[in-house]
Design a binder for these strands. Structure first.
Lengths: 221, 221
DNA sequence: GTCTATACCACGATAGAC
DNA sequence: GTCTATCGTGGTATAGAC
């Protein structure tokens, strides 16, 4: 009746929507296939399992997003060569694509980014094995770039601070306080609000990354 | 055969352990009751549902933790009266109790804090309705305290930055990069490492909170 | 009031017909 | 490629022992 491509894509869309609304485990494959108008077994045929379907949902969105991050990173490094981009510029390359995907072009981007934030705290081996597979290279590339921009910062300290930035980003993506931010509740799709929050996050993170590595001893109180 | 108190407590302990190891949905009530040595219906008798059991697990740990936070906040405000505590001091009151509960006194604390980090990204209404019920007052109290310490910062900006701090904290709690931090892999229960990471997070967050509210216009690139 | 035994229905996954 | 039938397991509800 329909082409295979179409069915696969529709299952993907429906799954992404239901996952973002109710979470992964609360969403049954029967609910997905029912709304997509296909048989339960069709899902298993195309994806093998519910777990693999979740993989596919992430894969579809994450690849272009991370490609965008790396492309922006390369461009910013070329523009500033032979020097290095400043911290704010690096942060925009890293935080801009995911933040702007929330409530920008398509409503699907919004849904998916809520999923992303959520995935950062999934059961032990979820984030590590699935998301980290795509995220690993991006993490290392940006971690190295930060190292070039902040050469005085010890490696361990810088990497830990990068983790702090990722945590702040994930928190914003998961339950976005973006909505509650302005006084005059704009439309949820207002790109101005996203841009404001993005730059406030960049400024916050830049200050944290640039903080001096303190003497530490006897600092309590 | 056993007292009700004992059974309830044992279910709670077992559930906390299994939840932290495998996540909420991956842990079946049958697995919990089997390991606890009680019947499935005993769980439903004491807690009503799996969802309510999750509530109870959080309730038991979160109450004393937030009491500790508020007690430390009050003490720091008394000690600095009529002035206000500095940002670092406030952050220690807020971040210290949860961070130190990881790998400090009892092994249960470790398990539970992984759960806490995980809960920050649960399906839409999970964190908001369950955890936020206990967390709401603490959030408002500390948000107000930060407002007194950083009076020049606009309210919206400060609250958003507080969210960034919470995100960084949650990320550290969930998958703690604490373990990977030092070169010479100490015992996982080493309180020195926790204290180091705590202070690095405090320093990072303090710098971010103190960052100037920028002119913003034309800041890109 | 505290708990066990057990039944109920929805879930994820699979085998096999078409 | 798609569907039907079916299996094992999940959360929950009920009956009744003590």
């Amino acid at each position: 009746m329909r082409g295979a491509k179409e069915t696969r894509e529709r299952i993907l869309d429906t799954a992404e929507q239901l996952f973002s609304e109710n979470g992964f485990s609360a969403t049954s494959v029967r609910a997905i296939t029912a709304r997509a108008g296909v048989n339960v077994a069709a899902l298993n045929y195309h994806f093998g399992s519910k777990s693999a379907l979740i993989d596919a949902v992430f894969e579809r969105r994450l690849r272009p997003l991370n490609q965008m991050r790396l492309r922006m990173l390369e461009q910013s490094e070329q523009e500033t060569a032979p020097g290095t981009p400043n911290v704010e510029r690096l942060l925009e390359c890293f935080l801009g694509p995911p933040l702007r995907m929330v409530r920008s072009m398509d409503p699907e981007g919004d849904r998916f980014m809520r999923l992303m934030g959520r995935a950062h705290s999934e059961p032990e081996d979820f984030f590590r094995t699935r998301v980290a597979r795509h995220f690993g290279e991006v993490f290392r590339r940006f971690d190295a770039a930060f190292g070039r921009t902040l050469p005085e910062l010890p490696d361990k300290e810088r990497t830990l601070r990068f983790h702090f930035v990722i945590g702040a980003m994930a928190h914003v993506l998961a339950h976005n306080p973006v909505d509650d931010f302005p006084d005059d509740r704009p439309g949820v799709a207002d790109p101005v609000v996203v841009e404001e929050v993005l730059w406030r996050l960049i400024r916050f993170a830049a200050a944290g990354l640039r903080a001096s590595v303190a003497p530490q001893t006897g600092e309590r109180l």
